[in-house]
Simulated assay, not measured.
Amino acid sequence: MTDATTATTPWLVAGLGNPGPEYAGHRHNAGFMVADLLAERMGGRFKAAGRGARAQVCEGRLGAPGSPEAQRVVLVKPMTYMNLSGGPVASIGGYLKIPLERTVVIHDELDIPFGALRLKRGGGDNGHNGLKSVTGTVGRDYLRVRFGVGRPPGRMEVAAFVLRDFSAAERKELDHLVDRAADAVETLIGSGLERAQNTYNS
């Protein structure tokens, strides 16, 4: 792909979660929370993607503070359940011809403490059904913004833990952490993975 083509190709930024108000505050919906804030920053609103994509999309521009120019971005929220997230991501990315190096997935991560972020390219799904679905449809070399939710306490099942609202103590910090994750996405697309990792991998 030429530099000129890359310059005109948008970024695809997909936040993972489960659709419906009953899931809105769950740990598993951290990706949706960050995507919603990014849409707000772009001054846009999510709308149905059409073309049978089973997703909501929001198009606009984002860029890290101090970046010379904002980047074209297509935000995506799959409207399937988590374990079928890959279909909408692949459909929209394929239709717009967006390569994996310009595809970002935002998701909750059990193996990172609550409040921490990790950015990376590629890797395994670590039991995350949304990532398993995305990787199965587009390959594994997309960029990831991993939002730490920590491990379940005691003997609580993982599924019960992620399909539960953040605790009262966690909710006191949540807005700030979602804001920081959105900043990380903007830095990633505006200044590159290495700069974003140096700034936000904690």
Score class of each variant (00 low, 15 high):
G17I: 10
Y95R: 14
A168G: 03
L100P: 02
Y200T: 08
F147H: 09
L62D: 07
L188M: 10
A181M: 07
L100G: 05
T2A: 11
P88E: 03
P88D: 07
A116T: 12
D141Q: 13
K97W: 01
L131A: 04
N126D: 15
D165H: 00
A30C: 11
R155L: 14
D125T: 11
G124D: 13
G15C: 08
V104H: 02
M156N: 08
P68S: 12
G60Y: 02
E109W: 01
V158Q: 14
R155W: 02
P21N: 11
G66V: 02
A159S: 15
E22P: 07
A53E: 05
E194Y: 09
T5G: 12
S191N: 12
V185T: 10
V145I: 13
R41L: 06
N29M: 11
D141Y: 08
P65V: 14
I92M: 10
A14Q: 03
G190I: 02
A182F: 09
D3P: 08
H26M: 07
E101N: 12
M1Q: 15
E173L: 14
V13F: 02
D141L: 04
T137I: 01
S167W: 02
P88W: 08
Y200A: 05
V57F: 04
D165S: 14
L188Y: 08
W11T: 07
G115D: 06
I189M: 00
R155C: 01
V13E: 04
P99R: 00
A4C: 10
T2S: 15
V73D: 06
R102Y: 00
R180N: 07
R180W: 06
N126F: 14
I98A: 02
L143P: 03
I106C: 05
P10H: 12
V149Q: 00
E194L: 13
D183Y: 05
R140Q: 15
V134D: 02
N83R: 05
M33G: 06
R140N: 14
D125N: 15
H28K: 04
F166K: 08
M42R: 03
G123R: 04
F32I: 01
L143Q: 06
G130K: 01
L75V: 01
G87Q: 13
R61I: 00
